[in-house]
Design a protein around this nucleic acid. Structure first.
Lengths: 154, 154
DNA sequence: GTGATTGCAAACCTTTTGCACGCCA
DNA sequence: TGGCGTGCAAAAGGTTTGCAATCAC
């Protein structure tokens, strides 16, 4: 399992757009570069701020629409969350998530044993599995060091 | 692993409230009964509609606050989602989730092999794991029978 | 050229907050 | 009785939609 290096791959954008008959616009290119560059799981607003540094006039709506489009064609993923703003993940390699229940951060991790989990036999008729992910919920290192117990959500 | 029967257990509400010094109000009782009764993962609004049938004057705000309170004390859980309204889960037994990417439904399933997954050794120092869940993403039976391909989100 | 895409603005939906009243412990 | 919990209303936060102008193909 190779790790995600965060490398921007313009060919992936080209290929994805071509496959679905979408146009390659400067806005889409910029959003794609930005979401790939960030090592985390940014929100639309964070990405908008980042893209704006190089593309002053891009609107938040376009960023939102672009991200949804990318997610629809499988170029990026919307990560699972508990109610805050949507977060996006450019990491298309098989990986798993750590959810910190205190600060809301979601961190990728790799574990080969989890990659090969067999789908339960009794589900195979009823549900067509396209991807799997293990979610570990708990407390991240940073939050463990903050002893003060607070139950904030993100 | 016993399955969740959806049985309302007033003692659990009493115990949870007592432990955290919370009052047992008619509203809390009603919301708790309603969320336990529903076999699915209802939204605050759905629960509000349900509770209202017996408790005409309860406000949506109270339902929202009550659900957050219950989640904070571990009486229920907020399930992972991709951006729609929050959904709540009264099922406190160890189980896993099927996410239908077409219709957005989340269905519980049980699989002992998944219950005993070992936490990766290299994580144990950095992250304190409190719970684990396997998420299978794909297409549910109902959506498979609808051949029309549509990429709606929930 | 022409239809997809964008930016703007408004609408929408859900959650959160402030505050006075009421009720549970 | 005191303070937590509730209802109401307003605000906040984020996403979605409609539309005219623009741009990629």
């Amino acid at each position: 399992m190779q790790k995600w290096t965060g490398t921007t791959t313009p060919e992936m954008l080209r290929a994805g757009c071509r496959e679905y008959g979408l146009r390659i616009t400067p806005q889409r290119t910029a959003v794609y570069e930005e979401v790939c560059r960030s090592g985390t799981h940014p929100t639309a607003e964070e990405l908008h701020a980042g893209v704006r540094r190089r593309f002053a006039n891009i609107s938040l709506d376009t960023v939102n629409r672009t991200l949804l489009t990318f997610a629809r064609i499988g170029l990026i993923e919307i990560i699972e969350g508990y109610g805050g703003p949507r977060r996006y993940d450019p990491n298309r390699t098989l990986h798993h998530h750590l959810h910190c229940l205190r600060c809301g951060t979601v961190v990728d991790f790799y574990h080969e044993e989890y990659d090969t989990l067999a789908v339960p036999a009794n589900l195979q008729h009823k549900f067509k599995v396209l991807s799997k992910k293990v979610i570990l919920k708990g407390t991240c290192g940073r939050c463990q060091s903050i002893k003060k117990k607070h139950h904030d959500r993100k």
